[in-house]
């Protein structure tokens, strides 16, 4: 039973990582940059939702929509102001700018909301207490169930979006070959903005789900999940949407099992250790495409 509980917790944490990793992987695919500020967008999303429910008294779902809207706008603004001027100058310059944006968001949050952790009320608290199965032998929280379901739903929607819609196809075209896409009449700027918008909206969802399960909300809340999700995106093969999903869920499960069965202090070490071994065996990640180098 403990095994099942751990598995469910792992899947649920992994789903959050997967949703964050989707944002990473989409942005990476389209602009070849590591958006280190992504973890902090999660934090902003969680704070907005927190403010919506606690200060404005909005219903939970309205606060989530509000958080998504704010983060979408934030994503577009960040891309336009900080990343667009540096497009095509090599990924290191943009990486440092992204770090600057990350510092900015963390410190802005520190000024607005203070450093004391806020207790986040779960958006599923209206659903009543957790589900009990096997005469109370197995307790599953609503957070875990919904996180998993929402992650699956997002995965399906994203796959449909990128394969069926015009915008989604444009995104894939731009990530494949920026210049050729431009020649085909695709508006590269708006496509990249759109990618940031979607990634940031997903980050808001992830932030709300993360804080529903782990209620302490601080300006640094997004940092570690951000790094883990980045790891997850690489683990699954960066640039690949199913890869991000798979990588996220595996990282979550490994982390929870490592914590439960091996060592609490070393759970991160185990996660990163597995990542290293996978990358050494399969250097492009689990579902990554192999790129042959041409002279």
């Amino acid at each position: 039973m403990i095994f099942l509980t751990n598995l469910i917790n792992g899947l649920s944490l992994g789903s959050v990582y997967a949703i964050i990793a989707l944002g990473y992987t989409m942005v990476y695919g389209i602009s070849k940059m590591l958006n280190f500020a992504h973890g902090d967008v999660i934090m902003v999303g969680a704070y907005i939702s927190f403010c919506g429910t606690s200060y404005l008294g909005l219903p939970a779902w309205v606060s989530v929509v509000l958080a998504m809207a704010v983060c979408t706008a934030l994503g577009i603004i960040i891309e336009g102001l900080a990343y667009r001027p540096l497009r095509g100058t090599g990924s290191l310059a943009v990486l440092i700018t992204a770090i600057g944006v990350s510092y900015f968001l963390q410190n802005a949050a520190l000024l607005i909301w203070g450093s004391a952790p806020k207790v986040f009320t779960s958006v599923f608290s209206g659903m009543g207490s957790s589900i009990r199965l096997f005469d109370g032998g197995l307790t599953v929280t609503w957070e875990a169930v919904f996180t998993l379901l929402i992650a699956i739903l997002i995965m399906i929607l994203m796959t449909m979006f990128t394969t069926r819609t015009k915008m989604g196809k444009a995104m894939r075209a731009v990530s494949e070959d920026n210049g050729a896409a431009r020649l085909m009449g695709i508006n590269v700027n708006s496509t990249i903005s759109m990618t940031f918008a979607i990634g940031s909206a997903l980050a808001a969802v992830a932030g709300v789900l993360l804080c529903s399960a782990y209620p302490a909300l601080m300006p640094t809340t997004g940092a570690m999940p951000g790094i883990k999700a980045f790891t997850a995106a690489v683990f699954g093969g960066i640039g690949s949407i199913p890869g991000a999903m798979l990588g996220g869920i595996l990282i979550g499960v490994i982390e929870v099992f490592g914590r439960a069965y091996i060592s609490t202090e070393l759970s991160d070490t185990i996660v990163f250790g597995v990542l290293i071994i996978v990358l050494l065996v399969k250097p492009t990640g689990l579902l990554g495409k192999k790129i042959t180098e041409k002279v």
């Binding site: 980045f230 790891t231 991160d268 250790g273 290293i276 492009t284």
Partner: peptide, 15 residues
């Protein structure tokens, strides 16, 4: 190579 190397060095730093 590249970003994969970056993530593995990150992982080693954390380890």
């Amino acid at each position: 190579r590249g970003d994969y190397l970056a993530i593995v060095t990150l992982a080693f730093g954390e380890i």
